[in-house]
Write a protein that binds this DNA or RNA. Sequence first.
DNA 1: TATTAGCACTCTTTTAAAACGTCTGCTAAT
DNA 2: ATTAGCAGACGTTTTAAAAGAGTGCTAATA
Lengths: 365, 365
Amino acid sequence: MRVLKPEVAKERKEKILRWVVQQFVESRRPIGSQLLADSALKDISSATIRNIMKDLEEEGYLYQPHTSGGRIPTDKAYRYYVDYLTGIQRMAAQERERIEKQYDERVGELDNVMLKTSRLLAHLSGAAGFVYSANVADQVVKRLDFLPLGGGTLLAVLITESGTVRHWPVRLGYDLAPSKVRLLSNFINAEITGMTLNEAQKFLWQYIKAGHREVADIADVAVQVLKDMQKPRADGDELYIEGLGRMLETTEEADYEDLRQMMRIVEERQRLSGLLAEKMDDLRRSGKDVAVSIGSENEIKELQNVSIVSSTYRVGDRTVGMLGIIGPKHMQYTKVMSLVKLMGDLLEGSISAWNALPGKEDDYE
Amino acid sequence: MRVLKPEVAKERKEKILRWVVQQFVESRRPIGSQLLADSALKDISSATIRNIMKDLEEEGYLYQPHTSGGRIPTDKAYRYYVDYLTGIQRMAAQERERIEKQYDERVGELDNVMLKTSRLLAHLSGAAGFVYSANVADQVVKRLDFLPLGGGTLLAVLITESGTVRHWPVRLGYDLAPSKVRLLSNFINAEITGMTLNEAQKFLWQYIKAGHREVADIADVAVQVLKDMQKPRADGDELYIEGLGRMLETTEEADYEDLRQMMRIVEERQRLSGLLAEKMDDLRRSGKDVAVSIGSENEIKELQNVSIVSSTYRVGDRTVGMLGIIGPKHMQYTKVMSLVKLMGDLLEGSISAWNALPGKEDDYE
DNA sequence: TATTAGCACTCTTTTAAAACGTCTGCTAAT
DNA sequence: ATTAGCAGACGTTTTAAAAGAGTGCTAATA
């Protein structure tokens, strides 16, 4: 291993490492010393580069797929590269503006923002884009309304502060007078607005058990509603992934197997949800903007050949979800990281605009 | 061209054609005369088969990718094959039961049936499954409600007879008293239930223009609502496609280009929607159960290497949507056709159960 | 007259060998 | 410490040959 003039040497070593990663991301084929010496690092001879690369290999940053033939970055190298980039990333104002414009055009009104945002992410990155919303039960309720459908059924409509609108049928088995439905709606909204769904549930249970007079006649309805409220959770958290198709375009024949594996996971939403939930926690705790998980850093086996670039989004001061892209390890991290960050901001903006509307409280009668 | 004993000859010719198609669907490589003579048609010599195949080629049923090397079915051959199959298809009771059970488990309550159905279709067929719902504007309204969000905004919730629930924000710019909102809801529901959205819109315009006293004070709100009602149409019709990932699994390297093309189309929903709308019309008119479009029979260029098996579903006596699968031309038509048919029935059943609930009318005050 | 066996020919696919290019590791010179 | 130069390694591409599969035609057959 080379020694002497430690800072200078280290500097140069890292520079070479960065070049290898960068070149590899672009060309997707092993990088040799000559190539580097000729293209990027004209002031260092290929022999020197060779020596340094050997050191880097010993340190676990590079990997030689065949005895003779260039070297490829390991996950550790990507990790270094991404960490290095983290400070640098900034998007050209022009680019930023272009994306913001597209966001306004394509996402627009707060109807299915999550879906649309994930599509736009996919579109702009050329990889798969996702938007994930943590457990609905932990989200703050903006409104919970009931529409009478007749036939002993109500349609519950839940609106959260993050703009999600969910609805599900509640079967009572008998019809409820419209006025009673209204009473129920008004009562619930007056009481639970501002709580999380979980809190609301607990609160309502208490309230009913306490046997308050004004809800006596709708108590059993409320109970039924509470029971059904759990149901949306069966699907797990909300997760949109789009643009898997586009990945076919940017993937090389050789990497199809990786892609296949990935698809398998994506179809199996449960596990991915789990992973994202965890990642969200990490990210929130670390306080970082954008997180990058590279290959083997992902616990799920099938994802060890892809990278995930993700960011959280907040409602008020609560972190309620994540968004990002899933793509090949050799992606353009610089670009993608800024993109994800920006989209996160835009999504947050979109939600807080929606949220500026204070969930109007009817006074119940 | 062979002549003589016309019926017998024709019979055998078709038999050979069917075998070629069937073998090709399984092996995905050109079928030669020897192969057939050895495997399936042991009582006819390869030479005879050769002669007949030549005839079939002249008639446009088979195609020789290389001067020497087996033959491949043309779209015309698939068409013949599918038509032949149409009479035969029937699913084993056992299989049917298994699928019905899965449907109950996985689709269940009428919450996002369309999405879930398309996922199940994909899952069971190994190809991409879709469910398409025709223009919302032509669907019968079951309810149209408004929830006050405050900040000069209402959330409109539209429930159609086919079980679709749509919602969109209506910005009024000023707040409406809760009682007024209720009045609006009740009035609208009492009047328009049972109309299509389009009819409802026309009706309401007339009503407002006529200046009826009881709606005078909410007229401008109604106008705004009507305007915003158009919006959901911007997305075009509702279309869910799932399972594109799974197609990777069943596709061979060589056919990836076809797959890529297909994905491109799917991302571009507009055109696909158009195609499906047309197809739905054809299907409804012909009165057939299941339609199969093979390769070049699809107008869209990018879809000329895939087949679409589709069926319609009804609400009452109105055909409101389609469902089916998109897959490789060489798919197991027998299986897929029965599957699509069955899923259509199940979806219809699911909707009509929901629809048994009569959109409860409040009498407005 | 329809069917079949046999054969020469064509064309793709597979296999093998050779030529090429790129990279490494080492050594000696700077 | 760096560099130039060179031998050896190994993947990739090119080229050539062999194998395999199928066709069309003709002559024999039932």
